[in-house]
Amino acid sequence: MGVWQSYKLRIQRRRWLVRAFRKRRQLSVVVDRTNQIARSDILVFSTFRNENLRLPYFLEYYRNLGVDHFIMVDNESDDGGPEFLSEQPDVTLYRARGSYKRARFGVDWLNWLQRRHGHGHWTLVVDPDELLVYPFCDTRPLRALTDWLDASSIRSFGAMMLDMYPKGRVDEVPYERGTDPLAIAEWFDSGNYTIQRNHIMGNLWIQGGPRARAFFPTDPWRAPALNKVPLVKWNRRYAYVSSTHMLLPRGLNLVYDEWGGEKASGALLHTKFLSSFADKAKEEMQRKEHYANSYEYRAYASDDSPDLWCPWSERYINWRQLEILGLISKGNWA
């Protein structure tokens, strides 16, 4: 990479940070418990809208992994979710007014909050429907992973999105608040992912899975990106560029090995396809606040309650299964 290129990326990073700084006005604090944050705490950052159904399990799941504090951004929910969160002892709640889309799908808000609260911490940026799985996650807490990453001088940890879906129509089994969504959406696609490399940002662009298969069979290049770098030892100079798919400085996107080896990586189990999905898709269609003019949601909405299951779908068991299938890797963590 030439000097000019890296200068351009530097300017771009600055631009995102300035933008985040400007968008901070849209944020107002509802409950501030940031004084509880200790120096080595692991923090979760998340934006949500009308996710009351999922929030209890989301908190429970990440508390069990050893997350110490949650910094949540509520984008105009009206389903009681914010009230629920404001009662939680380890949650700092912000409210964001204004367009989700114009805040680049929440990235600007989180960039600002991470800059403010995340400096020097391991930060995990996930949506309420994403559950992080990493090697040994059933026996070792998240802290074991971050300690190991620290010891190995690794600053970022990649975890691709793995779309989970139920067998049968998506709305067949209603999801109950507080229960494990993976009990319903327990299937995934094991081996139909395609990868391209973004030579400017250095990240991999991963597509595929059930969404590409079911909704974009004729124009697969429009299928949603699945690559993510959600876990980063944050520095106030870092900035996410587009969702958590990539960030700057671009060295953080190098979560893969280029010389034949495998780096450690995890997966975000994406439990979007629950019974609440159809309503959500319709609502988002009307709001038009999603990526690429809600193209994705338009594709979903055309099929009211899709059945994503196919005879070759794989039933989720644990991280070891994902490791054997080659979706995640232990790297040299043993």
Partner: peptide, 23 residues
């Protein structure tokens, strides 16, 4: 574990293994 990190699994292309051409 070291072998997994340095040589990886043959024929696997995934989020944390994307070898350069001929590697």
């Amino acid at each position: 574990a070291v072998q997994r990190r340095t040589q990886g699994r043959q024929g696997l292309y995934m989020q944390s293994r994307w070898p350069n051409r001929d590697w």
